[in-house]
């Protein structure tokens, strides 16, 4: 355990906090999610950890912030600053490949990397936004799936159903 901030590197601090789990999708760490944005150690040894919320109202952020503080305190950085930043806005594009694999193994269809951002200008302005990529069932692998609801058990997931194995499943939304 690191008991002093003298000589500690950002990489070492990062290792302390990187595997803090998301309390709502515990198979993912904040590093997998892209919620952990930056770890800095300045010349005086002051530690700053920067995190960003997934959705504006994500209730997991309070728990994540508390967990990060606890880890830092246990590792000898009780005065570390935990900064919450809104910009640049979080996107599922930041989710690691390891995170996507873990989601799939956990039974949640991972984001496919295409963001359904609304069109506001140009000739297509006002057209409803629709996802066209097929989503594979995380249970049986079939692409014969459909969306039941844009909204699921947490802000980051949508509710889907597989027409091959007939099972409902969560899909991590492209965002």
């Amino acid at each position: 355990m690191v008991t002093t901030t003298l000589g500690v590197t950002a990489e070492q601090v990062r290792a302390v906090v990187a595997d803090v789990p998301d309390p709502e999708v515990p198979v993912l760490t904040i590093d997998d999610l892209g919620v952990l944005r930056d770890v800095e150690v300045d010349d005086a040894g002051r530690v700053t950890v920067t995190i960003t919320p997934t959705y504006s109202g994500c209730p997991a952020m309070d728990a994540i912030t508390a967990d990060v503080r606890t880890r830092l305190g246990d590792a000898g950085h009780p005065d570390a600053e935990v900064r919450l930043v809104l910009t640049p806005a979080w996107t599922t594009d930041w989710m690691s490949d390891a995170g996507r694999r873990k989601l799939l193994d956990y039974g949640i269809a991972p984001p496919t990397g295409r963001r359904p951002v609304g069109r506001t200008t140009g000739p297509e302005a006002g057209a409803p936004v629709r996802l066209t990529l097929s989503v594979r069932c995380p249970l049986c692998g079939s692409p014969d799936t459909r969306e039941l609801s844009l909204f699921g058990s947490t802000a980051c997931k949508a509710l889907w159903r597989c027409d091959a194995c007939r099972e409902p499943f969560d899909r991590f939304k492209d965002h």
Binding site: S56, L86, T87, P88, P116, G118, T120, K173
Partner: peptide
């Protein structure tokens, strides 16, 4: 969407997150 260009950095940041969420509300 327009507020993301605000000269006020905080308002622009709040808007940049929110616009993606509201796209779902509008679609729903």
């Amino acid at each position: 969407a327009a507020l993301t260009s605000s000269t006020d950095e905080t308002l622009a940041a709040v808007a940049a997150k929110a616009v993606k969420e509201v796209a779902y509300h509008r679609d729903h």
